[in-house]
Design a protein around this nucleic acid. Structure first.
Lengths: 197, 197
DNA sequence: ACCTGAACACCGTTCAAGT
DNA sequence: ACCTGAACACCGTTCAAGT
């Protein structure tokens, strides 16, 4: 059938990404199906292959929007009020991860086959987020830091990811008396102490 | 057909778990299929449902063996020679993760729907591994540590998991000049410094 | 030119039918 | 009693057929 042209390809792409983000938020990544997205936006499954190369590409765009939103919040924390310290940034990150739990989990659970050839604009976004952390680290590190702020920022980012991802799956609760937020704050406080030591 | 009884149920279980572990090591979790395991051990797919409740249960046993092997190496590091410090334990962990990359990744990539009701013996194994770290932390923490060694051990475990899992997926390489091992050592060194501070 | 939706090649899981 | 393997209900993906 068809030749509807109710929407341009760009519009269909945007509708699909928005629908997928909403469906992930509501039901989790594990319940997201290409067929479901198609149904949601009123197009046939095949149509999505007209506007995306694959399900991978669709998910990559969904996750990029999620990263975008977090980076925007981190940058906002820097621009209004006093410069944020590490615990301030943790509160932003933790708040985002809590408000957008399923979507944030999807960013890591749906990893591309080969991140090495992630698009430049995606890597740039990640680096923009890391730069905020980097500046907060540099602010407290003084003149001769034992580690470069860039390296410390990446350790913080990856370490927090470990705590939140294990926490989200429930793998922390079974071996820890402290909850995820407490462990995250302890982690950040220890890194802060190490920077100043 | 059938009534072979070439093997007991216990034997079939062991054969399936061994085959799955080997297949994960060779080809990665993403290429492991129940049908493939059945073919490998010379039984029909349906037979695996005779001896396991589900694919989940099979994977749980595979992952338990992997955790077992790591914990054994950590405990061995404690029993021969001088008490290990945190960097010694990191070397054991990092060495294991490198030698058994695909199998170690599978432990976290294949998470149970609800870890809350993980079997007790599984939780006990995890806690045994954490206890080794805990003792190493306590050894350097002195009398009035800012954080309980048990909490520090869990922060270390989860943080390292973050670094190694992001590293394994290639998500660290695209935003970091340092490689995974360097970041892991920096992380452990900073936590060590925070404990002593 | 564009979209459809049946068809394809999978998957984990079930269960009637054989020995 | 035990194992088989076809069948079921899915999945992402493709593509001939319609408008």
């Amino acid at each position: 059938m068809a030749r509807r042209a109710d929407h341009s390809h760009d519009e269909i792409r945007a509708m699909a990404v928005d629908a997928a983000a909403r469906m992930i938020a509501d039901d989790g990544l594990e319940n997201l199906k290409l067929r479901g997205i198609a149904r949601e936006i009123g197009y046939a499954p095949g149509t999505l292959y007209n506007v995306f190369d694959s399900f991978d590409e669709l998910m990559m765009r969904v996750n990029a929007e999620t990263v975008d939103a977090l980076v925007a919040e981190l940058e906002a924390a820097e621009h209004d009020g006093a410069p944020p310290d590490l615990l301030d940034l943790l509160a932003v990150y933790g708040g985002f991860a809590q408000r957008h739990g399923n979507r944030w989990k999807a960013v890591f659970d749906y990893s591309l086959a080969d991140p090495t050839n992630a698009p430049d604009w995606y890597v740039a976004k990640l680096n923009a987020g890391l730069a905020v952390v980097e500046r907060a680290v540099a602010r407290i590190a003084g003149d001769n830091p034992a580690e470069a702020p860039a390296e410390t920022a990446r350790v913080l980012w990856a370490g927090l990811h470990g705590i939140f991802s294990l926490g989200a799956e429930g793998n922390l609760a079974i071996v820890s008396r402290q909850d995820t937020d407490t462990l995250a704050r302890t982690f950040v406080r220890m890194i802060d102490r190490a920077i100043r030591a």
